[in-house]
Amino acid sequence: MFARISGAAFRGILVAMLFALPTLILPASATDSPEIILFIALLGSVLAFTEYYSHFPSFVEFRNAPPINRMRFAASAASVGALSLLAAHPLAPTGLTALVQQLGSWLGGLLDFAYSPVQLTVLMMPPQVPEATVLMVRDAAGLASAAAGAAIAVFALVIRVGNWPVGSGAFNVWVNLPLFDPTTGGDVVQRLQRDGRINIIGGVLLPFALPASVKLASGLVDPGLLAAPHMMIWAISGWALVPASMIMRGLAMLRIAELIAQKRRTACSDPDEALQTA
């Protein structure tokens, strides 16, 4: 019980620190409403604590199948932290912010090629926006894309090399996929494969579709709002990490479908052995 409470409390503190990270890094002049940020951080902390303390699942997937959620959080923390340092460089430059700015400039220039998601984020910016803001958005997109790509690559490696989720113990579908009902909608393997492919396709297309949608809806959505540091940090992080999370979810569901199919083949070839290992 103590381990469960302490683990849930630790996760809640980490979530609160993630939401407060831009405010802690940026100068006080760049934060207009610290009370709202504090409220959001506390709300996120309470939700994380409640989810991981409860014995029953609610909405957080892969709760007992590490390290997928840890990788998602690490990618989010890396992206938000790097973008916060990038946004702080023009306001309060330090050696660390200068290093992040140089890294972002290199990644932004490297990924800013024809028809790339980074180039689309640059093209969606209005012409009246200063060049410095456009370059910062490009560099932020490069940093966030690198964090998202690294998370996807490491998780794919964990699946194949680390034999996820078998290496972490038995996989409970009810706890780890609370929003997935295996009793409805036909064969569970086919449904997992379909949902996994849909998530991967959606995650690949979303970084292209979001900038194009913002550009088309320029009369309703002003991309110039990305000049505000907090808006830039959370918008660019979400643009990169939500698709990455979808791709990781798709890879996980395809892996679970593969394991269920293997279990079925074992049961068909050797029923006695399948009963002994069940």
Rank of each mutant, 00 (worst) to 15 (best):
I37S: 13
A141R: 03
S168A: 14
A41G: 10
D181E: 12
A78M: 11
D195A: 13
V129C: 00
G250R: 02
N176R: 06
S76R: 08
F180V: 09
P271A: 14
G224K: 05
G149S: 12
A82R: 02
W174G: 03
V154R: 12
T94L: 06
V214R: 00
A156W: 08
L251A: 13
K263F: 05
V242I: 15
A75V: 07
Q190L: 00
G95L: 01
W174S: 08
Q101R: 14
L38A: 15
E35T: 14
S33L: 07
P130H: 10
T121Q: 01
Y53L: 01
G196T: 06
I152V: 15
G224H: 07
L18W: 11
L107T: 08
I40T: 11
A148N: 04
A82S: 15
I68V: 14
A8F: 10
A252H: 05
N199E: 09
L143H: 04
L192G: 01
T183S: 11
V214S: 01
Q102Y: 06
V154K: 04
T184Y: 08
A156K: 11
F171M: 08
R72T: 09
F208M: 10
R72K: 08
G219R: 09
R249I: 05
F113S: 10
A147K: 00
E258I: 01
G224A: 15
A114H: 13
F49V: 11
V154Y: 09
I13Q: 09
A144C: 12
F208L: 14
A217V: 02
L177I: 06
L103H: 00
L123W: 13
A147G: 04
F2N: 14
E35D: 10
L38M: 13
M231K: 06
G12H: 08
W234D: 11
A257Q: 07
A20P: 05
G250H: 09
G95R: 07
S213Y: 09
F49G: 12
A88I: 08
A82I: 10
A16P: 05
F49W: 03
R4F: 11
L192E: 01
I201P: 04
S105Y: 09
S45W: 01
F155C: 13
F56I: 12
L86G: 01
L254E: 14
I68S: 06
N163Q: 15
S84N: 01
A114I: 13
N199K: 08
F39C: 07
A16Y: 03
F56G: 07
L192N: 02
Y115D: 15
Q193W: 08
L254V: 07
A257P: 05
H55R: 15
S54T: 14
M231V: 15
R138L: 01
